[in-house]
Amino acid sequence: MALKSLKKQRRIQVIALATLALVISTVLIGYAMRDGINFFRSPSQVVAEPPAPTEVFRIGGLVEEGSIVRGQGEAVSFRVTDGGATVPVVYTGVLPDLFNENEGMVGTGRFVDGVFQAQEILARHDEEYMPAEVVDALKEQGVYKEPDAGS
């Protein structure tokens, strides 16, 4: 009788230890990835539900025509749009070579006091490519135009 209860007790200990290890590993993975997960938002989503100033996220759309203003040094400001809403962006750094008006871009940063403060700006890397999230946001607003197949 004592042998059966000892086996049962050992089995319960092993299950409890495995469960505890699983919980700890899940918490550690979540903690390690907290800065690596950046949710994508279109300008319309940012305007409709502004995120907290502490939240880092990605925004994407088209650089609005006539909106690029270069400041002192590497400072630049512009507006990004998805056709439904426009969000002002400020960035300090070197912009990608293919960064232009009416071209797709994705930025990573925070939305503070109505302005997206970008830490990183990415532009499409050739004439044919645009990030899928940007295409989806533009299609949702009815602004997206398919690239010419003959080019």
Rank of each mutant, 00 (worst) to 15 (best):
Leu95Asn: 12
Val46Glu: 02
Arg79Gly: 00
Ile68Asn: 09
Ile29Lys: 01
Glu140Trp: 01
Ile68Glu: 09
Val143Lys: 03
Gly71Ile: 11
Phe111Thr: 02
Thr92Arg: 14
Gly109Thr: 05
Tyr144Arg: 01
Val46Met: 06
Leu6Glu: 10
Val80Glu: 07
Gly36Asp: 09
Pro43Lys: 06
Leu122Gln: 15
Phe57His: 08
Gly114Phe: 10
Val134Tyr: 01
Val143Arg: 06
Val76Glu: 11
Val112Asn: 08
Pro147Lys: 11
Met1Ser: 12
Val69Ala: 12
Gln141Asp: 05
Asp35Thr: 04
Phe78Lys: 10
Pro43Trp: 01
Gly60Pro: 02
Val106Tyr: 07
Ala52Ile: 00
Asn102Trp: 00
Ala48Val: 03
Phe39His: 11
Pro131Ala: 15
Lys145Cys: 00
Gln141Lys: 12
Val46Asn: 03
Ile15Tyr: 04
Val112Ala: 06
Leu3Gly: 00
Ser67Ala: 10
Ala52Leu: 14
Ala75Ser: 14
Asp126Thr: 10
Leu62Pro: 00
Thr19Trp: 06
Glu120Asp: 11
Phe111Leu: 11
Tyr129Asp: 10
Tyr31Leu: 11
Ala21Trp: 03
Ile121Glu: 03
Ala16Cys: 08
Phe111Trp: 02
Glu55Asp: 15
Phe57Thr: 02
Val69Trp: 03
Arg11Tyr: 12
Gly36Ser: 06
Thr92Tyr: 06
Lys145Arg: 12
Gln117Ala: 12
Gly93Glu: 07
Val69Gly: 00
Glu64Lys: 14
Gly114Trp: 09
Val63Ala: 01
Gln117Gly: 02
Gly114Glu: 07
Phe57Gln: 04
Ala137Gln: 03
Val23Ser: 14
Ala2Gly: 12
Gly150Met: 09
Phe78Asp: 07
Met130Glu: 12
Val134Asn: 02
Ile12Phe: 09
Ser77His: 02
Val76Ser: 15
Gly107Leu: 09
Leu22Asn: 09
Gly61Ile: 01
Arg11Thr: 14
Gln117Met: 13
Val76His: 08
Asn38Ala: 06
Gly84Cys: 03
Gln119Pro: 00
